[in-house]
Amino acid sequence: MVRVLHVITGLAAGGAEQQLRTLLPHLGARCEVATLTNPGLMAEALAAGGVAVHHLGMRGNRDLRALGRLAALMRRGRYDVVHTHLYRACLYGRLAARLAGVPAIVATEHSIGDDRLEGRAITALVRRAYLAGEALGQMTVAVSPAVAERLARWGVPRHRVEVIPNGIDAGAFAYDPELRWRARTRLGLPVDAPVVGGVGRLEPGKRFDVLIDAMRHLEGAYLLLAGAGGQRAALARQAAECGVARRVIFTGEAADVRPLLCAMDVLAAPSREETFGLAVLEALAAGLPVLYGACPALDDLPADAAPGATRLPGTPGDMTQALRMLLAHGPPPRLAPPPAVLHYDVRRQAELVDALYERLLRRHGGTRKETRCAHA
């Protein structure tokens, strides 16, 4: 069996971290995870599922001791593949894999935008460091064609990029009225009030301030924001200034968003730029109507693949008006999961990732057979 070490910057409940947790149980490879920092909710969830999680204890971007610890872990584990996720982990993980002599090195690019990378501004230094790290690996997985195009514009050779879309387990988000009642009771939400939902990092790019502004015009409705991030205090101040603080609920990080999606009546995703749009697909799997600004996952499919999703031009007024129309007669009915959800099934994603591992290993000398014997 192929042995893989996934290296990720941290394991809070973000999109890339959630995606890694979703993918691992479906891979044919034997996987472990190393986190450079912050072994948060996803570390606990992975460990509960039987995945070994190694914490490197990195104390900052320039903590080179973590590089040595990571390379030592790779030598001890004699992994066949190192698979990195997120900017810092891609830099340190690919370099450590080279130092440890790992046969195959692959990265997944989850969060590259036109002018920001994982929330940080894309400077000349960031781009140079990114490209230097990319050259140490053999393949970069783009989670959508949009990401592949951005990588090409940066100068990553197209033959070193493979598009493997993110995947979801539709059953993990299925609507359950009992979960809805329990989640609303726990959060202090009225059972019959319309609830607008937002899911993601509380950062400026997600534009959750647009939803708080919309609440001024949605009397009796509540806003449920699921996620953590640096903008939480600013969003809370905005809610107070708008006079809607009582109707804006911040849930913080959640290892399992299904109860929260069950509690919502519509998902609103006003960001203008995304690399994939996983929250949109999860909401569609939960039967929610969705209003969104950007979702490459849906852009790549026929228009009838997600009839419950509506793309908006992007102005705050457009979002407010769309929400008012959708909630005019109370909470809308639940929808059946559309074809888009089945198209992005996580089992399909896992098959493509396993095939990539095998192809890279054939190209670069095969697995470490002595490792496989030692762990038989």
Rank of each mutant, 00 (worst) to 15 (best):
G10M: 10
L24R: 00
C31K: 00
A34F: 06
L36G: 07
P39L: 09
L41Y: 02
G49A: 12
G49L: 13
G57K: 03
R65Y: 01
G68I: 08
A72M: 08
M74P: 12
R75G: 08
V81L: 04
T84V: 13
L86I: 11
Y92H: 02
G93C: 13
G93K: 02
A97S: 09
R98T: 10
G101Q: 10
T108E: 04
T108A: 08
S111Y: 02
D114V: 07
G119R: 03
A132L: 15
M139L: 13
R150E: 02
A152M: 03
P157Y: 12
P157T: 11
R160K: 14
G167F: 05
A174Q: 15
G198P: 07
G198S: 07
G200H: 08
G205C: 02
V210Y: 15
I212S: 06
A226N: 05
G229R: 10
G230Y: 02
Q231P: 00
A234Q: 14
C242S: 14
R246I: 00
I249T: 15
E253N: 02
E253P: 01
L260S: 03
C262W: 13
A263G: 05
F276R: 04
G277A: 05
P289C: 01
V290K: 01
G293L: 09
A297Y: 01
P302S: 07
P316G: 02
T320Q: 12
M325S: 15
H329P: 00
R334S: 11
L342M: 11
Q349V: 12
L356A: 04
E358Y: 03
L360T: 05
K369I: 01
